[in-house]
Nucleic acid binder design. Structure first.
Lengths: 227, 227
DNA sequence: TCCTTTTCGAGAGCACTGCTCTCGCTTCGA
DNA sequence: TCGAAGCGAGAGCAGTGCTCTCGAAAAGGA
């Protein structure tokens, strides 16, 4: 019954949204480190102390922004896949890569917030793991649902890795060979790592602009997976 | 003539070193974000304002720490290669990977400082690029000096990438085929990306502990390079 | 309708931060 | 020897996250 709510509840929900919205604006313009509760309150025309009625502190506000960022990236992935339903799996894979990079370049601070250095003493709350998994799940879904060319097995997993891989496969992609799953994880690391390198300037002077390197890496990983 | 210096010069050098040392200690314990000039000064028993005689500000102090961290990582790489001079190139490659991960796990805040989200509005000064290049150069050196098994060429580089790769090859590893150089770059991204994922908790619950995944990735990249 | 309980916003205040400026003291070099 | 330069300390400014209290407003039971 979302219609019959007290005026207080509606106001609270609206203000919570406005606070997040303004915080997001500041995040986009100055980054997470410089995000200031007082500045958010100032911009909203309220006392900074009043903000604590809605968020327990800076960390909780940042957590909300992290979840939003993960969800937005997950939405981008879902939309991309929906728009490429008729394409080959390989094209869907590359489309996901491109969409992720485009989002990251358009929202560098949001990308840094979720895939960069965590804020100190901050450990991701439970609520973040589900939205965080959306992008890797979308990537894995393309691999899972595709007819894969056979690929050479590569180096054998050792130690705890075979168990970890089979547990992961059982939960997410039953039937996927372990070495393919391992390569999918590698691809995910490459996707995020390469975007991070580009955004944080580690490629400046050698491989910047990185668009073509990025496209090559997407194809390289698709090859390795047998897509 | 480093012997004949005024007392002032010697004191300045020593204090500069002590400031960096204390800052490093704080960096290791609380991270870059929480690094406080005032706390450093307090610990050294001096007024915070006096610190500005030695470093123009927090950013400059952080830059000094960044350079130190890159150099320490470079030293680790050099020492590792020196200690593995008799090993096969493949073993040298894997030893570099392991040493890098070990250093990162022992110095997570330093790793985050150099490979994590840059501080806001901060762009790496010229002085950092040379020490920053030491680890990738060491990795590339192993590949350059090794007899490589022929590997399938993989997807062709397009757009600006062939030019970037040949310029890079000309400067660092003449004669290295472009697709091998591209894979070396990919491997570098994977090395740093995987360590970042592990340190920042992105693998918790699925592939953590990540030691065996890491070893597998090292071997996988070695295979791809023909090592 | 009244009255209690809960919710809320504002303000003051605390303990911090980075950074600047000034004021004396010490050291250096001509 | 004496002026200049380097240096440390202190006060101060503007900003931060966060807490506490107080009065007003809304909510809901009697």
């Amino acid at each position: 019954m979302p219609a019959i709510r007290t005026a207080r509840e509606r106001a609270r929900e609206e203000l919570t949204r406005e606070i997040k919205q303004e915080a997001r604006r500041q995040l986009a313009s100055v980054g997470a480190q410089q995000l200031s509760l007082r500045a958010v309150a100032r911009e909203l025309g309220m006392a900074s102390s009043a903000l604590y009625r809605y968020f327990a502190g800076r960390d909780e506000l940042l957590t909300a922004l992290i979840i939003d960022a993960y969800d937005e990236l997950g939405d981008v992935a879902d939309r991309t896949l929906a728009g490429a339903a008729q394409d080959t799996p390989r094209d869907r894979w590359c489309a996901l890569w491109t969409a992720t990079r485009d989002w990251a370049r358009a929202n560098p601070h949001e990308f840094a917030l979720v895939y960069g250095t965590p804020v100190p003493g901050y450990s991701a709350p439970r609520a973040t793991v589900e939205p965080a998994a959306r992008l890797p799940l979308a990537l894995l879904g393309v691999v899972r649902d595709a007819p894969l060319r056979p690929t050479p097995p590569g180096p054998p997993p050792r130690g705890a890795l075979p168990g970890q891989l089979s547990a992961l496969a059982a939960a997410l992609a039953p039937g996927l060979p372990p070495h393919v799953l391992a390569r999918a994880v590698s691809a995910w690391v490459q996707l995020v790592g390469l975007i991070g390198f580009e955004l944080h300037g580690h490629l400046v002077g050698s491989l910047d602009p990185a668009g073509d390197l990025f496209a090559w890496t997407a194809e390289q990983t698709a090859d390795a997976l047998g897509l």
